[in-house]
C-alpha cells in the first residue's frame, strides 16, 4: 500500500513538465526515504535524478519499496487536470498495475481521481558517487535559462568556462559567435538573484545546447540553479525543490574528435 499526500501539488506538475520531454518512460521508486526517479534520455547522453523526500509530504505511507513504471507523457496529461492549488495524493495497492492520482481543491469542494495504467520498464540504475567538482556556479535560474535560449539561436553547443574572472558561456555557429560572461555578484539584496562562483581549478567543457535547454524547463521549480563542473565528469545542473529535495540533470560533455 502506497499513499503520498502532497499539499503543494503544483510541485509535482512542475516536475513532470521539466522531465517529460527528456525521458519517455521511467520507474518512480518509492521507499522510506522518499519518492524518486532516475532515468536517462533515449540516447544515454543525459540523466535525470529526482528526489522528493518523505518528510516533504503531509502524509507518506509506503509499506514496502515499490517501483512504478510510468509513461511520463501520460502522467503529465493526468497531472495537467489538477489545479495549481490542488492537493495531490498518489495511491497504489501492492501488486496493482495502476496508480491513482487524487486531486483535492483547497476548499475540499472538488475531489477527482484519475487512474493510470502502469507499465513494465526495464531500466538501468546507475550509481552516481559523490564527487569533488572543479567549479560550482550558483546563479538565478531564469538567467541561466535566458543564456541557454539566447545561445541556441546562434550555435548548437555551449562551452562553459570557469576562471577567476567568472563563468563564460560561449557558442559559435554559421552566423557568428557569442560570449556571455557572468561575474560573481553577491551584493544584491535578494540572495536568489546573486551569482556565486566557487572555483578550485579553472575548468572548460563543451555541451550540447539542446539538452541544456531541456533542463531549463525546471526553472519554475527554483529561483536558483547550481551548475557543477569537473573536467572528468558530466556537468550537474541542479534545481532544489523547496524543502523537499531536488531535480538534478547530468549531461555528458562533448570532446574533440
Amino acid at each position: 500500500m502506497l499513499e503520498l499526500r502532497l499539499v503543494q501539488g503544483s510541485l509535482l506538475k512542475k516536475v513532470l513538465e521539466s522531465v517529460k520531454d527528456l525521458v519517455t518512460d521511467a520507474n518512480f521508486d518509492c521507499s522510506a526515504t522518499g519518492f524518486s526517479l532516475q532515468a536517462m534520455d533515449s540516447s544515454h547522453v543525459a540523466l535525470v535524478a529526482l528526489l522528493l523526500r518523505s518528510e516533504g509530504f503531509e502524509h507518506y505511507r509506503c509499506d514496502r519499496n515499490l517501483s512504478m513504471g510510468m509513461n511520463l507523457n501520460n502522467m503529465s496529461k493526468m497531472l495537467k487536470c489538477a489545479g495549481n492549488d490542488d492537493i495531490i495524493t498518489i495511491k497504489a495497492d501492492d501488486g496493482s498495475d495502476t496508480v491513482t492520482f487524487m486531486f483535492e481543491s483547497p476548499t475540499q469542494d472538488k475531489i477527482a481521481d484519475f487512474e493510470m495504467k502502469l507499465m513494465d520498464i526495464d531500466s538501468e540504475h546507475l550509481g552516481i558517487p559523490e564527487a569533488e567538482y572543479h567549479a560550482i556556479v550558483r546563479m538565478p535560474s531564469a538567467e541561466f535559462a535566458r543564456i541557454c535560449k539566447d545561445l541556441s539561436s546562434i550555435g548548437d553547443t555551449v562551452v562553459i568556462s570557469v576562471t577567476k574572472e567568472g563563468v563564460k558561456f560561449s557558442t559559435r555557429g554559421d552566423i557568428g559567435t557569442a560570449n556571455i560572461v557572468c561575474r560573481q555578484n553577491t551584493s544584491v539584496d535578494k540572495p536568489e538573484e546573486s551569482t556565486i562562483i566557487e572555483m578550485n581549478e579553472p575548468v572548460s567543457l563543451t555541451f550540447a545546447l539542446r539538452y541544456m535547454n531541456s533542463f531549463t524547463k525546471a526553472t519554475p521549480l527554483a529561483n536558483s540553479v547550481t551548475i557543477s563542473l569537473s573536467s572528468e565528469l558530466p556537468v550537474v545542473v541542479e534545481y532544489k525543490i523547496a524543502e523537499m529535495g531536488y531535480i538534478r540533470f547530468y549531461l555528458a560533455p562533448k570532446i574533440e574528435d
Partner: peptide, 14 residues
C-alpha cells in the same frame, strides 16, 4: 562538431 560522450561512460550500473 566534436564527439558526444555518453553518461554510461562515467557511471556504472548499480
Amino acid at each position: 562538431s566534436g564527439k558526444q560522450l555518453s553518461i554510461t561512460e562515467f557511471y556504472r550500473s548499480s
